[in-house]
């Protein structure tokens, strides 16, 4: 038995071939932006929270691991 729905899907796949590289580039660009924002947040989140806690009158714990990582200290 034929399946006209599958044939229609094939037509759409052919139609997509032309558009595919452009869409892929856009997705990769957007994904890179998300990753960059994620990395920045990951890097600075603790510091931002520390500043926030200090501003609201709390104690900010010192990061001992960083202090001890420099052998000259």
């Amino acid at each position: 038995m034929n399946n006209s729905f599958k044939e229609l899907e094939k037509l759409h796949l052919e139609q997509f071939e032309k558009k595919s590289p452009e869409i892929k580039n856009q997705i990769e660009g957007e994904a890179s932006s998300y990753k960059f924002i994620g990395d920045v947040l990951d890097l600075y989140f603790n510091k931002i929270m520390g500043v926030f806690v200090a501003m609201t009158g709390g104690d900010v714990k010192q990061d001992n691991t960083k202090k001890n990582s420099n052998p000259t200290d």
Partner: peptide, 24 residues
């Protein structure tokens, strides 16, 4: 999967440009 997603989008949205945006 991108082609199949596009196929569904164009079937439902009936417009190639909108289907491309939706696929993304």
């Amino acid at each position: 999967y991108s082609g199949k997603i596009f196929g569904k989008c164009i079937s439902l949205l009936k417009d190639e440009a909108r289907a491309a945006d939706a696929t993304q």
